[in-house]
Simulated scan of single mutants.
Amino acid sequence: MADLVRLLSKLRVASGASSPCLLRCLSSSAASFQSENQIPSHPVHPLTFSPDLTGTDPKDRNVQWVFLGCPGVGKGTYASRLCSLLGVPHIATGDLVRDELSSSGDLSAQLKEIVNQGKLVSDEIILRLLSKRLEAGEAKGESGFILDGFPRTIKQAEILEGMIDIDLVVNLKLREDVLIEKCLGRRLCSQCKKSFNIASIDVKDENGNPAMSMAPLLPPENCMSKLITRPDDTEEVVRERLRIYNDKSQPVEDFYRSRGKLLEFDLPGGIPESWPKLLEALDLDDYEEKQSAATA
Rank of each mutant, 00 (worst) to 15 (best):
C83D: 04
L107D: 01
L96R: 03
L11M: 11
A136K: 13
E138A: 15
I228P: 08
L284M: 09
K119P: 05
S28K: 15
L147K: 02
K193R: 14
V203F: 08
L68M: 14
V121S: 04
M224Y: 07
D232S: 15
G16R: 09
L279W: 09
A14M: 07
I126S: 08
L179Q: 03
L7S: 12
L85T: 05
I228M: 15
R6S: 13
T77N: 00
L217V: 06
H45R: 10
R133A: 13
E142K: 14
P268A: 13
N37H: 11
K226N: 14
S213V: 09
L47A: 07
V88H: 08
N246V: 12
E264C: 11
N222R: 11
V66R: 06
L184G: 02
E161R: 08
T56I: 15
D148F: 06
L82T: 02
K10W: 10
S18T: 12
R81M: 11
A2R: 14
L68C: 11
A215E: 00
D283F: 08
I201R: 01
I166L: 11
G87Y: 12
L4Q: 05
A136R: 13
C25T: 05
R187A: 00
L160E: 08
I125E: 02
K10D: 14
Q38K: 05
R98M: 10
S27R: 14
P58I: 10
E280M: 10
G105R: 00
V121L: 06
V115P: 04
L184E: 03
W275S: 00
S108C: 12
L188T: 12
P210L: 06
T48Y: 05
L217K: 06
D57V: 15
D95P: 02
P151R: 10
H90Q: 12
S9D: 10
C70L: 12
